[in-house]
Design a protein around this nucleic acid. Structure first.
Lengths: 290, 290
DNA sequence: GTGAAAGCGCTAACAG
DNA sequence: CTGTTAGCGCTTTCAC
């Protein structure tokens, strides 16, 4: 039999199987764009899912999720058994369609008290707050915050600023740049801080690329980092981390998001009940002497 | 009718459609890993394909494509209409299965005279050669080459070395590191060059992260780059590019690979004949005064 | 043109 | 337990 199979080159048609069994063994993931940091969680998702015979349908929703709704519509027709979403802000229409589809949904990279179904992520507010508390605890007393105009980035910055406000520090210089954050924008942020005359002792960048841009701006002026200026980034952008022993960061385990999401999907497919919200947390990685 | 559709929340079952029409409107892509540079080509692939109603099945083949064969088997059963592959070395079994499937296949990120079907990429030999010729033309006369033990990386280095050999320069210091290339390995490469006593005037790194690691190694010694040491990387790793006005690179348009592949697939699905091999080339981007 | 019927290649339910 | 049969929800063909 095996020989006959080999000779004829037969391999089962999974689309027929999917139709008959109503189990397509697909999970769909919608990410803003594939090259972003968010997509790194997809790696662990794919790998774990692949082990159990599931395949990933990957789609991009574009800048600020502009295409999420239409992409979702296109994808639901393919009857994936689960949906991996980025972020927690989704249109009513998206929510309605997801409700109709009645399949496990996991929102990621954030936390919310009102998830569509499940969430695995961390609190961006807590990140900003922890960043502020960390810098204060290390004795810094003048601050700046730089972010890009993207929801999660802004929320980290806002939490940073408001936490400082609570302990009586209200003159936090804020620099906001256009999404997406990249290296030159970090340099630009540094220039703007310079123009404002009084450079702070510590700056929180809501992104690691931004932090790295600020860093080189400072280094170009022969400043000592973190001596003259402490820089705290976010995300553990490996490259930034390795490049700059001077750059501290709020580190998030990106692969955990994919891994935990995969396990949650598989458990649900298996009929098990699953924790609805998983906070993967974060940690502050100190480098140099900041 | 629209109202009834809206009320019942009906949306067509594409898996039934796929079975009936034998057109699944899926394209599958197999990449070594999602976080690698290779995967950036996937972005443009997905986007262009999505515009035409095609969805992407993404799978990873693991380090040095170890899982490519099994992953392909799992994927062919889903009857994608096209396959996007990374690289040009594929096992006989892979080739056999692909032949049986009789669907368009595009090998990418490389060039070969014997493609399975179509190829879109560039010549790694030419990259190495161009790197050598560029540095020589700029007056450098002592060289080092650093690479990781990955097929394409090695081929760039080998071409670099052999091109220099042809013009009479045979004492090129070579440093080989383990795959995958990362920042610390670049620093390690620099250390090894130092240990060898005589530091060259120019070094070609077959990866941009490697180049950046070498760069910071040099900067740590207060060396002037490119004054004391010219560093030429490969790949246009944006971060490296932005960080270091001192770092030149052999730039490849990664999005072009996905875009061209998508167009080729769509044309073939449409019954058109398509160019079998597309060389997207590369260009040397000079930064600083190197 | 419009409408009914016959698959697509499996899985699952059922009868033997 | 093995063998048969009836769908899964579409597309396509074919008769009208």
């Amino acid at each position: 039999v095996r020989q006959a199979i080999d000779r004829t080159g037969y391999f089962p048609n999974l689309v027929a199987g999917g139709l008959a069994s109503r189990r397509t063994r697909y999970v769909a993931a919608i990410v803003p764009d594939i090259s972003s940091r968010v997509s790194e969680s997809i790696q662990s998702l794919t790998d774990r899912l692949g082990e159990s015979g599931y395949q990933l349908i990957l789609a991009t929703s574009g800048v600020s999720d502009s295409r999420e709704e239409s992409v979702l519509a296109a994808i639901l027709g393919r009857r994936p058994e689960g949906i991996f979403l980025t972020g927690i802000s989704h249109s009513d229409e998206t929510r309605r369609r997801l409700a109709i589809a009645k399949i496990p949904v996991i929102e990621t990279w954030d936390l919310t008290p009102t998830p569509i179904d499940m969430v695995v992520g961390f609190s961006h507010e807590k990140v900003g707050q922890a960043a502020a508390e960390y810098l204060v605890s290390r004795g810094y007393d003048s601050f700046a915050a730089v972010s890009v105009d993207d929801g999660r980035s802004e929320r980290r910055r806002e939490a940073f600023v408001s936490t400082l406000m609570k302990i009586g520090i209200s003159d936090v210089v804020t620099v906001r740049l256009e999404h997406p954050s990249d290296f030159p924008k970090g340099r630009e942020a540094f220039s703007r801080l310079l123009e404002l005359g009084k450079l702070p002792r510590a700056v929180f960048c809501s992104t690691d690329v931004l932090a790295h841009g600020v860093l080189t701006g400072a280094q170009a002026l022969r400043m000592d980092v973190p001596g003259d200026l402490a820089i705290l980034g976010f995300g553990d952008f490996d490259f930034a981390a390795h490049t700059s022993p001077a750059l501290s960061t709020v580190r998030v385990d990106r692969t955990a998001i994919g891994r935990i999401a995969a396990e949650a999907f598989l458990a649900r497919f298996d009929g098990q009940t699953v924790e609805r919200v998983t906070d993967i947390g974060f940690q502050i990685v100190q480098r140099g002497t900041a």
